[in-house]
């Protein structure tokens, strides 16, 4: 078995070993979404208008729930140190790790958002645009939050710090995604903005793992 294969199998096993971490973000998303009508009004027209933005923000927050845990367990039990001795570059392992995280935690969460969309009576075409923006944007968001997690590994209890440090950098993604959603709701062309969003995501997913790798190496070196 290649390193990649074993890596993926291990990640899958870890997910299966902790189903709580898998379901917690979805639980959070649905809970937050069900609070919106209570706080605002049950008027379905109003909800439909702001629903997509609410779902976007709630999904973002739900994503951040597990972000701090990304490297912490591997760091504590010494797996990260072993990454340095694989015959693979560190950033490649980071990419693998982030891909697994995205596939096992983020994509399932995105698949739950249509349920949230129904609860807030978001129109179908906006809902499809929402799904596409989430799928395009989350790789970038995962990379950013991974950097936050990697930078705060050296702190005793990182808690929410990594999130606070990284959240301002999410602004362009949120703006582009919101632009797509407004255009989708008035029926204009969303492709140019989707292309921009995709470009940003691809750039983030290729460049940030390098930075994450440097940050991890710092912490691994610092702990020994």
């Amino acid at each position: 078995m290649s390193v990649e294969h074993r890596f993926l199998v291990r990640e899958l096993k870890l997910v299966l070993a902790r189903p709580g971490d898998f379901f917690k973000p979805m639980w959070f998303l649905i809970l937050v979404i069900s609070m919106v009508p209570l706080a605002l009004s049950p008027d379905s027209k109003l909800l439909g208008e702001i629903g997509s933005a609410m779902i976007w923000v709630a999904t973002l927050l739900a994503l951040l729930l597990n972000a701090d845990q990304l490297f912490r367990d591997d760091f504590v039990d010494g797996v990260l140190e072993q990454w340095l001795f694989f015959n693979r570059p560190l950033f490649w392992l980071v990419i693998l790790k982030l891909f697994c995280h995205w596939l096992f935690y983020v994509v399932p969460l995105i698949l739950v958002t249509p349920l949230a969309g129904m609860m807030l009576s978001v129109p179908n075409d906006v809902m499809i645009a929402l799904l596409v923006t989430l799928l395009l944007a989350t790789p970038a968001l995962t990379c950013f939050s991974a950097l936050g997690a990697a930078l705060t590994l050296g702190t005793a209890r990182s808690g929410i710090l990594g999130v606070l440090v990284m959240l301002p950098l999410f602004a362009p993604v949120i703006i582009l995604a919101a632009g797509v959603l407004t255009r989708a709701s008035d029926g204009s062309d969303i492709l140019p903005l989707l292309a921009l969003l995709g470009a940003f995501s691809i750039a983030a997913a290729t460049l940030l793992p390098l930075a994450v790798g440097v940050a991890l190496r710092l912490n691994i070196g610092g702990s020994s």
Partner: peptide, 20 residues
């Protein structure tokens, strides 16, 4: 500022801040 104050080792804090 938060990141630097959270990391005790000044060398580590400096490099982490530089990445950020």
């Amino acid at each position: 500022i938060g990141l630097r104050s959270a990391i005790k080792n000044p060398d580590l804090a400096g490099k982490a801040c530089a990445i950020l």
